[in-house]
Design a protein around this nucleic acid. Structure first.
Lengths: 295, 295
DNA sequence: TCCATCGCATTACCTCAGCTAATGACGAAT
DNA sequence: ATTCGTCATTAGCTGAGGTAATGCGATGGA
């Protein structure tokens, strides 16, 4: 791509303002005066020919253009900062950046983070979440955890956990479910993968009703909806142990269907660091134990 | 994320060196002297505590650390440049950034680009390709074309083309195929989606043999392999019209299986620009005609 | 073997992008 | 009215990042 001169410093100022909500606060974060920030934005707006902020006495409000610009910058700078962190050999602690499937991060990894830090205090773990779309190289990550059925070109993969799917719903709704066929008249919440419900009904040897309604690309959104009584969601049960033990979600039927498993993956063209090896060993051992979260 | 002070200008210098292969050429691209480049990299290496380049009389060779840093920077700066382009209201021409599935880009869009430019000379089309993993917001895109079965949270989607899959292979191999059952003893090339071959054998009412071998996440890689005689690939036929009419690939059986379609998508929380509307109208009309590429 | 050539490094110096400091103007809250 | 919290503007300063000139090492053809 043919790049014009990117006003990178001005863009960083812009990004901080968007997070802080005001020129003054951004100036404080950047350790410069408010005037410097005002200058930078004035020049940036001028060079782009676009107004980025509406000024108000309470702070600034981004325009449509500003809102368009922000996510790209935030993501880009984050990725750059992450990869720089990793290169910084002066640190004693090792930094390990992992992109983790959101469901796995909240349902499995988070409750065990304390255990990991206790076992490896020398590793500073940086976790960024994704909904199964992640590119290790571009995002400046060391490794990633994703759900699937394997087969990721140029990546080494270790299977971590089987995660069979089963219907989960609120207790009130579960009380009305005696038989899988009862589900045919319930609202069934759809994930992004449309083959899942038919697969489960197949396993339950019950005809599958047509599935309608909105689609959500996150198991967490589905779990929230199900817990709120909006319907029945097909979810990886092991990731919702806590919800189940706390009564927010109930599994009405034992039948499960295989849809994939969680994998730990990393680029096969990279030399593994000590931190990568240690994390890999730790998480494989933890998954073998397959124990409930310790929280 | 807690960001250290990002030495953004130095990083941009680094990125240019990686592309140009030498300090001197990078200096030319940046329109500064070679000494300035040398300074910037020396300071960057010093502050990171890491050597980024091995110097040689033929130019510079990146170290492992340098190779790690590059893709993140390249991608980040590209995304930033793209979104800035879009904001630049001083231009008369409108810029439209589209992330396009690689197969669709090469198999369908590329042969029709001339027609689009003729119809809309005022739109400057920027295409970046992806293998079906794309985030419109983060990448600074206006729209995206992807393959799937619909259902993308927070996105509007228009179905463009059905793209049923059929086996394709080299002519020499096709000569040995009389009946779908003959495929059971042929090397079957695997895509990332493992359900596809079983789906096709189902449609052909033939038992599906176990599928082995490497997995490729790109239809183009599969097509290359198939054309080279390495095996039979299950591919969206409409995207390989040219290969077929030129005899590089042959479709031995008429049976197809549905695996998804191509969609045009954009964020539902964004106001559509005139360029977005025009492109959308144009591509929908082109797909309706469903004609062979004009090349 | 010698010299021309093509790399990056180093040194000393310069210059302007980007800062500070001080002040002004405006709107909201009380 | 007054006070406070915004951002804007002005004038002037300063050091990050540039230039120019030179050095040094490796390569390769005569």
């Amino acid at each position: 791509m043919d790049r014009p001169d990117l006003p990178l410093n001005a863009l960083r100022v812009f990004e901080v303002i968007m997070r802080q909500g005001s020129f003054t606060k951004a100036a404080a974060e950047l350790r410069v005066t408010q005037a410097a920030v005002s200058h930078q934005i004035a020049r940036l707006e001028d060079s782009l020919g676009v107004t980025l902020f509406l000024r108000s006495p309470q702070g600034v409000i981004p325009t449509d253009e500003g809102r368009l610009l922000f996510p790209v910058l935030e993501h880009g700078f984050d990725a750059i900062a992450r990869v720089l962190d990793r290169l910084d050999r002066r640190r004693d602690i090792e930094i390990l950046s992992i992109g983790v499937n959101t469901t796995f991060a909240l349902g499995w990894l988070m409750p065990r983070l304390d255990a990991f830090h206790a076992a490896h205090p020398e590793i500073d773990l940086r976790i960024s979440t994704h909904n199964n779309r992640v590119e290790i190289l571009r995002e400046g990550l060391d490794m990633a955890i994703r759900f699937g059925i394997g087969g990721w070109t140029n990546h080494e993969m270790i299977p971590l956990l089987e995660a069979p799917l089963a219907p989960l719903c609120a207790a009130a709704m579960a009380a009305r479910l005696r038989d899988p066929a009862d589900l045919q008249h319930m609202p069934l919440l759809r994930s992004y993968r449309s083959a899942e419900w038919p697969g489960w009904f197949g396993a339950a040897q019950t005809p599958c009703p047509p599935i309608k309604g909105a689609i959500f690309d996150s198991s967490l959104a589905l779990a929230e909806l199900a817990a709120a009584g909006a319907g029945v969601a097909l979810l990886p049960v092991v990731m919702f142990d806590r919800h189940i033990s706390q009564g927010q979600l109930v599994q009405p039927f034992a039948t499960t269907v295989f849809a994939g498993r969680y994998y730990l993956a990393w680029r096969s063209d990279r030399v593994s660091t000590k931190a990568m090896n240690n994390f890999s060993r730790w998480i494989v051992a933890q998954c073998r134990q397959n124990q409930a979260p310790t929280v």
